[in-house]
Amino acid sequence: MSLMKEFTKGFWELLPPFRLVLGLCPTLAVTTSAENGLGMGLATAFVLACSNMLISALRKIIPSKVRIAAFIVVVATFVVVVELTMQAYFYALYVKLGIFIPLIVVNCIPLGRAEAFASSNGVLASGADGLGIGLGFAISLFALGTIREIFGAGAFFGAHVMWSSYEPMGFLLKAPGAFVCLGLMLAAINTISARQAKRKLEAARLAAAQA
């Protein structure tokens, strides 16, 4: 039961780019298409799940004084594994994502989860946490990439989807478009959670009044 909770918190409560506001560099840079966003997100999710589990398994052995160095080595190992695998089997995507695959190492999410969660929780819980947060990241990047690709290029996964006379809003594929899109999504998510909190508060007040 609690394992499920560790897994699902990554989809809303701790949604990385919007709630933790971590990993913004790849979020802004590679989400020019749905495919790039999804590829980057899944690569990060894999690294996160594996590194979380391994770090959790080693948490009793790693002395706390060198833990950051040890975490980084573990994360970097998985990142290089992902990079080599991607180069071998998804070469086109590898070329497009370029430097941002090796940069997963310095992305704050894997190190952040290792420090905040995996170093003090069990292997299974850490795996669920890493996978959940990673998939949340992948979904966020996929959503952002989808919006930018549909309006900025009139396409979805490279296939034309808008009507034929639609003139793509090239602004969205450029850097300022990434910031604007991210900001608008952040605002929308904050609005929804503010409404949720308000509803919860009112329900509690109602229950108190009835009691």
Binding site: L58, I62, P63, V66, A70, V73, V74, A76, T77, V81
Partner: peptide, 14 residues
């Protein structure tokens, strides 16, 4: 020892 071991294993895996 611990750090060297982790780095060494990582090197082998890579």
């Amino acid at each position: 020892v611990v750090l060297a071991l982790i780095c060494g294993i990582s090197g082998f895996v890579l």
